[in-house]
């Protein structure tokens, strides 16, 4: 493609943009900044433009220093979680047109340490996830002693499949009001995953997991605000998992 054709293509892209939005990006580098600063950028958008597209547009054309984490662009990897207009969302799954606002403010998710700008450190969430023993626990195995299959009916699969959709984006932990004040709380992500394995009929590690979550900063700190379920982009509903899990601990469920 010739340089002229390329220039024409770029300019036609801009001309076809019917609207302009102000993208307000929170910038912060903990290594040398004392606080967050908001920088405004005018970005053209179409009906289908996502917030991630707009942030990447800014990064490409207006400010290369904007730090953002992303990968799949299709709500599968859970990398681009951020606070968009005050609510945790996936940037790749949120269209600017559906926000109905002339100003779109993007900030890093709450309740996680900031690495830089929109990027947060998810180490603690993964550590809590690991604490839940996120694997099927049993002594025999389909792999090492392939004498039988672990049968599962469609009804048994329904018991946990919803919770297996978790992509570990961390939006639920960011929306949780308990996480906002208790740094030791396990969080809805980890507790939802604990339910995922407890409800799996192939698993034999129920009591081991219930013991892990039955502590002062564990499941009892959830007060059923339900914000975790409202922000989940995959329909996991951690609030339901936590209450069902609590049903096991209280003896209402077997």
């Amino acid at each position: 493609m010739s340089e002229t054709a390329l220039a024409e293509e770029q300019s036609s892209t801009e001309v076809s943009s019917s609207k302009i939005v102000t993208l307000r990006i929170a910038k912060f580098n903990p290594e040398h900044d004392s606080g967050q600063q908001y920088v405004d950028f005018k970005v053209p958008y179409e009906r289908w433009t996502t917030v991630l597209d707009a942030v990447l547009d800014v990064k490409k054309h207006l400010d290369h220093s904007v730090a953002v984490r992303y990968s799949c662009r299709q709500a599968s990897c859970g990398s681009c979680g951020m606070k968009i207009n005050g609510r945790p969302r996936l940037a790749c799954f949120t269209k600017i047109s559906e926000l109905n606002s002339d100003v779109v403010t993007v900030e890093p998710m709450n309740n996680y340490p900031i690495v830089r700008d929109l990027v947060v450190k998810l180490d603690k969430m993964f550590a809590n996830h690991k604490k839940m023993q996120p694997y099927v626990i049993r002594e025999d195995s389909e792999i090492t002693a392939p004498t039988k299959e672990f049968n599962q009916t469609p009804e048994q699969l329904e018991e946990y499949i919803q919770f297996a959709n978790c992509i570990k984006c961390g939006l639920c932990n960011s929306a949780c009001p308990t996480m906002a004040t208790d740094s030791s709380f396990l969080g809805p992500q980890a507790l939802g995953q604990a339910y995922r394995y407890v409800a799996d009929n192939r698993d034999k590690g129920k009591y081991s997991r219930l013991k892990i979550i039955d502590e002062s900063h564990g499941i009892w700190r959830c007060h059923f605000a339900g914000s975790c379920s409202q922000v989940c982009p995959k329909g996991v509903d951690p609030a339901m998992g936590i209450q069902l899990l609590r049903g096991y601990l209280l003896g209402f469920r077997k």
């Binding site: 329904e158 946990y160 499949i161 339900g226 379920s229 996991v236 339901m240 209450q243 069902l244 049903g247």
Partner: peptide, 23 residues
């Protein structure tokens, strides 16, 4: 009642737009 697991819905394969059953 919710804390005991009552009235929070039943786990099911979620369909878009993913309205949470617990809410």
């Amino acid at each position: 009642l919710g804390h005991g697991g009552y009235g929070v819905g039943k786990p099911a394969r979620p369909d878009y737009p993913y309205t949470p059953a617990s809410q």
